[in-house]
Amino acid sequence: MTLCARDRRIIEATQSGLPLTPAPYAEVAASLGLEEGEVISRLAALQARGVVRRIGVAPNHYAMGMVANGMTVWDVEDAESSRLGAAVGALDFVSHCYLRPRAQPVWPYNLFAMVHGADRDEVEEKRAGIAALLGDACRSSEVLYSTRILKKTGLRLTRKGAP
């Protein structure tokens, strides 16, 4: 997917947030020397293409009391993995859901689903719900709890080597 220079500038100007002023798109436009209408229509086009996933608030999980998270991993039959992955991803407590390659013999799991809850008991309860949904198509599973954040940086469009 390619982005033109104006799209990139609009992304760079809004990726840390929209101004909290009555006409935020006009303010972004003014900072870039563009018209408000162009910023709005470009963001709408980016949303239609899926580059903008949503516009709104990002709640702080921890502040909302969702302090436990577990990376649940599942060894799911390949023939069923796409159908079941879609069903798991649609659950409202799963924040990320992917199929990834296995790394045998140490890692037999191909379906990854990040589960959030108020505590580990709640994460385990939700994990049991996923297990029930997967049924016999799942051969084994584990949950990996994070014990420490070692590094966390925001993903940014402007990085080393970016135009």
Partner: peptide, 27 residues
């Protein structure tokens, strides 16, 4: 607007605005 500013400054929300698909942006 005032509530959003308070929620952001108090840490209840981490960000307000568009969320981009990082892979769609070319990374």
């Amino acid at each position: 607007i005032a509530r959003l500013a308070m929620l952001r400054d108090g840490g209840a929300i981490t960000r307000f605005g568009p969320f981009f698909d990082a892979a769609a942006m070319g990374g």
